[in-house]
Design a protein around this nucleic acid. Sequence first.
DNA 1: CCTACCGATCGGTAGG
DNA 2: CCTACCGATCGGTAGG
Lengths: 196, 196
Amino acid sequence: MPTRFTNRKDQIVQIAAELFSKKGYSATSMRDIAEHMKMEAASLYNHISSKEDILHTICFTTADRFINAIDEVNDIYFNGEEKLRMAVKNHIQILTDNMAEAQVFLREWRHLNEENIQAFIQLRDRYEKGIQSILQTGIDENVFQEVDKKFATLNILSSVNWIVEWYRPDGNMSPEEIADKISDFLLTGLHKKQPF
Amino acid sequence: MPTRFTNRKDQIVQIAAELFSKKGYSATSMRDIAEHMKMEAASLYNHISSKEDILHTICFTTADRFINAIDEVNDIYFNGEEKLRMAVKNHIQILTDNMAEAQVFLREWRHLNEENIQAFIQLRDRYEKGIQSILQTGIDENVFQEVDKKFATLNILSSVNWIVEWYRPDGNMSPEEIADKISDFLLTGLHKKQPF
DNA sequence: CCTACCGATCGGTAGG
DNA sequence: CCTACCGATCGGTAGG
């Protein structure tokens, strides 16, 4: 019964993501996860092969979401500012739609084993390249300053990723509002346009 | 012999900070730390009272550094832009001078016990207030836009804190260069000043 | 999906 | 600072 099987794994991954994000990967035990699944720890192994298998699934599923989103932006939208706003919006949507997984993706990937870390970093690099190419578009259009793209990309990603530290679904800002505000901030900075 | 005692605790804290930053707090064992100290795990307890005592020391020592730095900036410097640049520079200097502790401060504070977490968050909030008051200075001078200060502060902190994810002491950017570049980016954003 | 269990390791203490 | 040790818990397997 593969369907039931898959569902069950998804449930485990979801519950594990919540525990990993709350307590950290290492401090979460298989018995913790099992308890929330209302089963014995040993039974988990009918659905997953190891604790790291769960972490791997979380990290790479989330990475795929990001990569699909950036590819879509670079395929569809046209000018740099539009692309950037769309990329920021998609990024934040992924974060806020999957808070627990996103936090694990951002904080716990270091606990993957060595070869999975390599693959993970490659996906992350590919995503960063996607952002960089957006910046290049804006520069080519003479709309963005000639910034150091690598540096600016890290700045952009840090701003959007930090959201998981304070975003609350029941807070007074929607993901879209946050995205607009962040994009505004990234585009114009603190300075007044004509200060004097 | 209190001096020798203090020194020994500092050594333990330093080595623990490196291990905590590399492997995470929970995945680092007292035996790991002891091994790097070339002593037995039991002997560590002559210098520290518990594993969490070490984490506590790291987190609160680092918090003190940040708070002293921001208070100094708000005492000495005058205008908003100058203050912001100085605050960013100091912040980055603290991060890069104490990479391991800073990473633990940023990533591992969640493993403090509940009441220490409360105290920790209070210190962090005080620091954020310090940044906000810098922004207010710039706004009052009519040099900064009327931004949402809380939101802008989180943006600024995310940018500077993300540095610990990629900064390497042997890289090709000095902490001062990074500080200048980040300040420029925060102040002016991606847009060209007169785009058309 | 469970019972029963494994060897390994954990943070920490007693006592010197 | 060490030896010797504690009870608890870890990820995971065997076998049904």
